[in-house]
Design a protein around this nucleic acid. Structure first.
Length: 783
DNA sequence: GTAGGGTTAG
């Protein structure tokens, strides 16, 4: 018999009186002389109160059998063994720890001989109540243990998230030569949570095969789960396909894993096979299948599953409703998602979170915020997941103020060190210009994930002056064992691109190859832009030609050629893009417009702008208008540009007028320039850069008096323009500079070289060089 | 005899 659990029943059973092991049977042992079962009322002690509770509930039959026990017989005698088990089981079912403890106390007193079986039950009961110290104490005190004892204890640690203990016990069990069975295997497999545990998982799999357990559907399901967790879906599939007698639960599991892996079509296929094999899907089957989607399994399949779930009568199940809300939300069907939510019988916090998420992801972040306030006012408990969603909502609609309040709420609710909340906060602060706050949250996070690193990178991207730091930061990340993912690389590549840091970009390129992420679309697309912005259009094209293309890839390469002033190639690529069946989006159009602009192809630009809506169904936004104004302006069509602005829906936007003034400055047209300047300063009276622009326009046109007047007006308003800066990387060192900067020790040589370059450009010595004969062979520029 | 494989949001 196990020792007494410390801290319990001290008044009743002082531990000092308790033998570590049951005393040898004596003539007086009640085991040999069972007390007579005469109907008597139990006393009013603690045990009998528990006993009464048992009587009053599901164990009435057994209770009747013992209803005659006196208080003395309860405390000093015994229940026949099966009934101890029933009592312990009952305490688990009724979630009654006190009852379990009382039974334990009573067992200690009764000193049963058949200890293993009863003690296994005690280990189980304490494990189930997450009292692992007590479970371990019972375990430690057992003289004899069997496979069930070990497995039960492991299961307890597993349920309490202590996977290391599971492995530790497993090793000890193995070293002692204790037999593993199918239960043991299943428990160890469940403890394999990270890829580092693969070795244990594989050892157990080998054991399973050796002992012919692979056809056990429970063991096989655990294997499927283990392999899925360690990203070995192929192995999971193999195990699943090898199960000769499948059941619905293992099929549900495979559907779930396919869904998690983003293989919705396979999940759907398994679902169809299940129906064809004559299985009756349960509510889990539907929940899993509806949650499993990918690009090839769309709304149609989702609706079919929804219809079938109605037919099978599972619509009352909350998780299924939650899955449907999310499914409709992911297809942008917000009304349908709302209908699912409204029609639910019962809503869990997940249901609220799901509908909040639908709103946030479909552009209704403000609606989500209002709903969230309702949730709080109604006293619904919110968890960290729900707070994350609403923080994303704040980020989505640039509502920093609410975000700060929710930060406060999260702290108050004890989620200050929650990594997901922290990441959502970093994202919010970094995106909306509070880099310092983002950094504070980041630094205070006790454990960081790659997502938190990726979120803080956005902060670095948004604040140029921190760029130098970000490289140090990235090295810290690399050397602190955090594995960068494709998001990390795409953001870092953008960072190098913005800094025009080719050396850094190249080393990052090498690193992506080493990590095997170079072919991922986000990485490849960012790489194209990095090479283009760092001056190497050849490398940009090389990347383009080796990766698979999506719309973003095309946009990246078109922008790359546009940036390099190769408008004709950009237009040609645009044609290729359409030929390959990629419909352009608004970024594509903008990139091509810019390409036309930089290459002086204003007529192509205008016709593209005119057919944006009619031919491609894309409504022009302000950036398209601004680009077109620039296009006309740089082509010297200033009155056309002015006319264009006046007819546009953005006639009162300073951006368009500023663009026109700049064009007037370049062309030296002070007449239109003056009228455009007037409009600009009316619309943006507090913007220093507008005054500078207008003043420069006059100065360059020789109207020094007007230029001075504008400067004075600006000074009177006490407007200060932030100095623009740029930088160049030479030999791994970044040099910052501003206009007319003479601080650099070699500034004399730098300016001399600049003059030389200027002369060469003017004399046409630096000719246009075509970098790429592949796409450009028919173009005049390459002739 | 006692111990075994899930569900939805982020």
């Amino acid at each position: 018999m196990s020792p007494m659990v410390e801290g319990l029943f001290q008044p009743l059973f002082p531990t000092s009186f308790l033998p570590l092991h049951p005393p040898p049977s004596s003539s007086s042992s009640p085991l040999h002389v069972p007390p007579p079962l005469k109907p008597k009322t139990p006393n009013n002690g603690f045990i009998s109160r528990c006993y009464k509770r048992v009587c009053s509930q599901s164990l009435q039959l057994e209770a009747a059998q013992y209803s005659g026990l006196s208080s003395a017989s309860i405390s000093e005698s015994y229940f026949p063994l099966p009934d101890w088990t029933r009592l312990i089981q009952f305490s688990i079912e009724s979630k009654d720890l006190l009852l379990a403890q009382a039974i334990h106390g009573s067992l200690v007193k009764s000193s049963c001989e058949d200890a293993v079986f009863v003690d296994n039950n005690l280990v189980n009961v304490y494990s189930k109540f997450s009292k692992m110290a007590d479970a371990q104490r019972v375990f430690d005190g057992m003289r004899v243990r069997n496979t069930v004892t070990w497995t039960t204890l492991m299961k307890g640690y597993l349920k309490n998230g202590d996977f290391e203990s599971v492995f530790h016990i497993g090793r000890e069990m193995y070293n002692l030569g204790e037999k593993f069975n199918e239960h043991t295997c299943s428990v160890v497999l469940q403890a394999c949570k990270s890829p580092e545990d693969d070795i244990y998982g594989e050892q157990v799999h080998a054991f399973i095969i050796k002992n012919g357990l692979e056809d056990n559907v429970v063991v096989a399901t655990s294997l499927v789960s283990m392999y899925s967790r360690s990203c070995q879906l192929g192995n999971a599939e193999k195990v699943f396909n090898g199960i000769t007698v499948k059941d619905v639960q293992c099929i549900n599991y495979m559907i779930l894993e396919y869904g998690k892996a983003g293989l919705g079509h396979k999940a759907f296929q398994v679902f169809v096979e299940l129906l064809n094999a004559g299985f009756k899907p349960n509510d889990y089957t539907f929940t899993n299948a509806i949650s499993a989607r990918d690009s090839s399994v769309g709304l149609y399949e989702g609706k079919q599953l929804h219809g079938l779930a109605v037919k099978y009568g599972y619509m009352g199940e909350t998780p299924l409703g939650n899955a449907l809300i999310t499914m409709y939300g992911q297809h942008g069907m917000v009304k349908e998602a709302e209908r699912m939510f409204v029609e639910m019988n019962e809503r869990s916090l997940i249901s609220w979170s799901a509908i909040l998420s639908v709103f946030v992801k479909n552009g209704y972040a403000k609606k989500a915020l209002n709903l969230f306030l309702d949730i709080l006012e109604n006293g619904v408990y919110v968890d960290s997941g729900c707070l994350c969603i609403i923080l994303d909502g704040c980020s989505e609609c640039n509502n920093l103020e609410s975000g700060i309040q929710i930060h406060g709420l999260a702290t108050k609710l004890g989620y200050a060190s929650d990594v997901n909340i922290g990441t959502a906060l970093i994202d919010l602060y970094a995106k909306w210009g509070c880099f310092r706050s983002a950094r504070v949250v980041f630094d205070r996070l006790p454990s960081k994930t790659i997502a938190s690193f990726n979120a803080i990178l956005v902060g670095y991207l948004n604040s140029n002056f921190e760029n130098e730091d970000s490289m140090v930061f990235f090295n810290n990340l690399r050397f602190n064992g955090v594995r960068p993912d494709s998001v990390t690389f795409s953001r870092l590549l953008s960072l190098y691109a913005d800094q025009a840091c080719l050396v850094g970009g190249k080393s990052l390129h090498a690193y992506t190859i080493k990590m095997g992420v170079e072919a991922e679309s986000a990485v490849g697309n960012a790489m194209i832009t990095m090479y283009a912005k760092c001056g190497s259009i050849q490398d940009a094209y090389k990347i383009f030609s080796t990766i698979s293309h999506d719309c973003v890839t095309w946009n990246a390469i078109i922008s790359a050629y546009s940036l390099h002033g190769e408008g004709n190639k950009a237009i040609l690529l645009f044609e290729h893009m359409k030929e390959e069946g990629f419909p352009p989006d608004e970024i594509t159009i903008l990139a091509v417009l810019q390409a036309c602009n930089y290459s002086g192809l204003w007529e192509n630009g205008i016709s593209l702008f005119n057919e944006m809506e009619t031919k491609y169904g894309i409504k022009p936004v302000i950036e398209h208008f601004a680009c077109t104004v620039d296009l006309l302006g740089r082509a010297g069509k200033l009155s056309k540009a002015m006319d264009f602005i006046r007819k546009s829906p953005f006639v009162d936007s300073p951006l368009l007028w500023r663009t026109l003034v700049n064009a007037c400055k370049l062309c030296g047209d002070l007449e239109i320039g003056t009228s455009a300047s007037k409009k600009l300063l009316d619309l943006a009276p507090n913007d220093a850069s507008s005054y500078i622009l207008v003043s420069n326009m006059y100065a360059e046109g020789g109207m020094m008096e007007e230029a001075a007047k504008v400067r004075t007006a600006m000074n009177d308003l006490k407007l200060i323009k932030e100095t623009g800066s740029s930088w160049i990387e030479v030999d791994n060192e970044v040099h910052f500079f501003i206009a007319s900067d003479r601080d650099h020790p070699e500034s004399r040589e730098i300016y001399a070289n600049l003059d030389l370059l200027r002369d060469e450009i003017n004399s046409g010595l630096i000719a246009h060089s075509c970098s790429d004969n592949l796409i450009c062979k028919d173009q005049e520029c390459c002739d």
